[in-house]
Design a protein around this nucleic acid. Structure first.
Length: 599
RNA sequence: GCCACCAUAGCUCAAUGGCAGAGCGCCUGUUUUGUAAACAGGGGGUUCUGGGUUCGAAUCCCAGUGGUGGCUCCA
């Protein structure tokens, strides 16, 4: 089997990269004196960052897009040229960002790659850009009708991603090989927007975010609370069965707790101002681990007591920049399905593996197979970490070997560790392809030391336990946000806030509808008879829109034969089913947490 | 936090300096329906908030608040 072509080598990549240059040419025509930064291809398209002399308007975008199409249709050749450093500096003397890039390319930046000895520039028509390439031979290879620059509004972006540096205007574009592909992409975007958990949250009455309560502080409506509560109860039971012990701790803590833990300095940017309580400073907790450490140290521990696994759905509060808040996926108060495992060093490997298996089980049960596993290790060049190197190495080795043993498909990223230890994260993408970290497992030698945790070992000496921090969902808020999009709001029955709605055909069928409701409720189903005074067809329409898995229509025939006429979410009409059969089969589907709704 | 854009009825939206509207939802009445919207009537507005320009502002300007897209940081 031939190896899959890398995106960087593909024709599409060249098209997008070249389209970015053509867009830059059009932008410079519209905004003479604009400074160009960088313009790479990205997934589905490209962008280019500019420092513009004035704000860009919708009219400007239209003009640029039109001009760009024109330029593309003029079959301009892309010509590559090697230049010396001096030539490059002369060529881009009015372009400060390019000059900075040139300077960087010429110096040894310590990444092992040799500094460049010569630079390449590409020219098409009247535009020349410092660029490694590759590009198309000519704009004739780009179909002007397969290019669009108005799919995303222009955005602010910092030069080199540094908020202390120049704020640039980023213009996004999308480019494909054929107009049909562009149409398909537009279609996919539209579909994705419909699945957005914020839109579905409103449509299905799951949650609201209320300005008076505060940004980033979601309020769970009954439907959302049922969903959340169902997930919590399930995971709580799984954890009890796996040897976890429940604990409950308060949302506030004396600041000494966080000074001891080390969170106070390291989390300064994301903590709220301390609250004065009788002269002592208290903090809304950004983390649950310090509280759990104090539970551990509340009594002497023997090596026989370990591992101790303290679990709590612990709500934490973190200050997030207002521009970063987003629906349920980025909030200021959230509940972590947290647990802290206090283990002996000889237990670390097995405990870590069990945690990973638990997370795999959680994701698997929900059909969430599309995630990437990332092992975040320390960036040796950074000083943002605590603990000594030997501990970091031990922890990293433990994670790597556990993941290897499990055959987990992971990749390692330096610099992605927590400040106290390396970690394994499960990362998924939302409908708009943004990545979010969900489940996480972290190995920590540091907190046990800071809280002076110990146990008496077999040889009657005091030893230091190792901690594992872990959260399969990560946070209930974010996880459910992603889950809503994963199912597009069509939850499997065990999670559906409302599982069955009984719709009487005429008012004279209300009594039977109530009877069916009572019977199903007795079986533990979330069922409701809709006795409103309106016609059956409009009720079907309404409940269909709410994505109820089972609609049960009842009329004379059903009363006579003690059946319900089942209509599945989607469009399938199963016809009449004996009531007892329905109750039995539906209960089975719910108990099995099946994602099928067909009976 | 920063840059850009946006904010009209519960929801989706219309009204381009001159009487603030429609559809759906809601309420009332009529209708009693076998699988995606019965009919009629009614209620519903500080056009996000505050200031300014103007004879006159939903509309133009300024500030604030909230939202959207993006940047940096993170579950």
């Amino acid at each position: 089997m031939p190896e899959e072509e890398r995106y960087e080598d593909s024709q599409l990549y060249k098209i997008r990269h070249s389209a970015a240059h053509v867009m830059a040419e059009a932008v410079l025509e519209r905004f003479p004196g604009a400074k160009t930064a960088i313009g790479p291809p990205i997934e589905d398209g490209f962008y280019y960052d500019f420092d513009l002399p004035k704000a860009i308007s919708a009219e400007d975008i239209k003009w640029i897009e039109k001009r760009m199409r024109k330029l593309l249709s003029q079959r301009h050749a892309f010509t590559r040229r090697e230049v010396t450093a001096a030539e490059a500096r002369a060529l881009f003397q009015d372009q400060p960002f390019k000059l900075e890039l040139i300077a960087d390319l010429l110096k040894d930046n310590g990444d092992g790659a040799a500094p460049a000895t010569s630079l390449t520039v590409y020219t098409q028509n009247a535009f020349t850009d410092l660029c490694r390439g590759p590009h198309v031979e000519s704009t004739a290879e780009i179909n002007p009708k397969a290019v669009s620059i108005s799919l995303r509004p222009p955005a602010g972006a910092y030069w080199r991603g540094d908020e202390n540096r120049a704020q640039l205007t980023r213009i996004y574009g999308s480019a494909w090989q054929s107009p049909q592909e562009l149409r398909d992409y537009r279609k996919r975007l539209e579909e994705a927007i419909k699945r957005d958990h914020r839109a579905l949250g409103e449509k299905l009455d799951l949650f609201i975010i209320d300005a008076m309560v505060g940004k980033g502080l979601p309020l769970w409506l009954p439907n959302g609370a049922i969903l959340r509560d169902t997930l919590e109860r399930w995971l709580r039971q799984v954890q009890l069965d796996s040897g976890y012990l429940p604990v409950v701790t308060p949302h506030l803590g004396n600041i000494e707790l966080y000074k001891t833990s080390g969170h106070y300095p390291y989390y300064a940017d994301s903590q709220y101002t301390p609250i004065d309580v009788d002269g002592d400073a208290f903090m809304l907790r950004p983390m649950n681990c310090p509280h759990h450490c104090r539970i551990y140290s509340s009594q002497p521990r023997s090596y026989r007591d370990l591992p101790l696994r303290y679990a709590e759905f612990g709500t934490v509060y973190r200050y997030e920049q207002s521009g970063e808040l987003r629906g349920l996926t980025r909030v200021r108060g959230f509940t972590v399905d947290d647990a802290h495992l206090f283990v002996r060093p000889d237990q670390l490997q097995d405990e870590f593996k069990d945690v990973v298996k638990l997370i795999q089980r959680v994701f698997g049960a929900l059909g969430m197979t599309d995630f990437r596993a990332r092992i975040g290790t320390r960036d040796p060049a950074s000083d943002k970490y605590v603990g000594d190197s030997a501990q970091w190495e031990a922890a990293t080795a433990a994670i790597l070997s556990a993941c290897d043993d499990l055959g987990l498909d992971y990749h390692v990223e330096a610099g992605e560790a927590a400040f106290y230890g390396p970690k394994l994260d499960f990362i998924v993408r939302d409908v708009l392809k943004r990545e979010w970290q969900l489940g996480t497992v972290q190995v920590d030698y540091n907190l046990p030391q800071r809280f002076d945790l110990d146990y008496v070992d077999r040889d009657n000496t005091k030893k230091r336990p190792v901690m594992i921090h872990r959260a399969p969902f990560g946070s209930l808020e974010r996880f459910i946000g992603i889950l809503i999009e994963h199912f597009a709001g069509a939850f499997p029955p065990w999670l559906a806030p409302q599982q069955a709605v009984i719709i009487p055909i005429r008012e004279s069928h209300n009594a039977y509808a109530r009877e069916v409701e009572a019977l199903l409720k007795g079986r533990g189903l979330r069922a409701r008879a809709d006795l409103q005074d309106r016609n059956m067809r409009s009720k079907i329409r309404q409940h269909r829109a709410k994505l109820i898995p089972w609609l049960l229509i009842v009329g004379d025939r059903d009363i006579e034969q003690r059946t319900v006429s089942v209509r599945l979410r989607g469009d399938k009409d199963l016809g009449a089913l004996p009531l007892a059969d329905f109750a039995h089969k539906a209960s089975d589907i719910i108990a099995a947490q099946s994602q099928e709704i067909a009976l």
